[in-house]
Amino acid sequence: MATSTTNALVGEEPAGPSPKPGTGRSGQRRSALLHRLDLKGAPYAFVAPFFVVFAAFSFYPLIYTAWISLHGVELATLDVMQWVALDNYVDLVNDSRFWNALRNTITIGVISTVPQLLMALGLAHLLNYRMRASLFFRVASLVPYATSVGAAALVFTMLFERDFGMINWALGVVGIDPLDWEADKWPAQAAISTIVIWRWTGYNALLYLAAMQAIPAERYEAASLDGASRWKQFTHVTIPGIRSTVVFTIVLSTIGATQLFGEPLIFGQGPNGVTGGADNQYQTLGLLLYEEGWKNYQMGRAATVAWAMFLLLVLVFAAQRLIRRLRPRTP
């Protein structure tokens, strides 16, 4: 509708900013043509850079990964690709390191994501109060988000240090024996999850807070007229009100969890980093991908791990959808 209006307007007044004012009717026609070209073409030109970058550096590599995973490729001779059909996949499912990394990715994913989102929910609830220094608390909760994986993992590695780390010292104060946070499987996975939780809780809390503030106040008024307690209001008004944000953060955290790499790598302090500990006790799929490609020089196998990660993601989302559909809807 608006397009036709502008076109009509242009028909009357075509000689605006055209570089050459034009001579008579042919100039008019040319600038009208240019104008129509601009109207039709400019939007595509404006959105094109995104799609070009995405196609070249995300979509094409993702698809090409599948092709590479059917080949043997060595890091030193990247242009030599030897067709091996599904051999890489057969090797992968027979490789205990793969199943170990898959289990670790899932367990670390669960013990980092679930507490993180629950704590974010509580924090958002607190931040939603009318209070003094609210900006300070919001910025403070976002400070970990400004810290890079590298710095965060280094600091927590020190805090979790076995002999002189602050956390074992604090445990000692309350009479708990020190733990070996690196060498033992579950403490190591808990420590790595702590880094993830620390970095992302405040960020998620701000997303929840934004959604909470968009809930109309009348809903709370109606609920309190019905005699609903604060807790009832939280579960019956707040939670349903921020549902889509919750789903969104679950999706993002799940993607993040399947890709986990930097935290375990740096937590492993050097030689144990890529293998995820001396016994692979915290090797994730991301680390396995890197180990296959850049430590064992097998790019074909690395591509296979990448596709396995992709499949895992697809499966997790399919499962989430299924659960959501099976769950009875509350009125």
């Binding site: 995104f50 799609f51 995405f54 550096f57 995300s58 979509f59 094409y60 590599p61 993702l62 090409y64 990964t65 590479i68 490729v73 990247l78 242009d79 999706v251 993607i255 399947t258 890709q259 790499f261 991301g286 991908l289 490609g293 790019m299 690395a302 591509a303 990448a306 596709w307 990660m309 992709f310 993601l313």
Partner: peptide, 24 residues
């Protein structure tokens, strides 16, 4: 919708071809 959909693609998955591309 396509733009939004691309957010669901973790960039880490294409890292092998991307590395080959950059080396080339």
């Amino acid at each position: 919708m396509l733009v939004i959909g691309t957010m669901m693609v973790p960039p880490q998955l294409g890292v092998v071809p991307l590395f080959m591309m950059m080396s080339e």
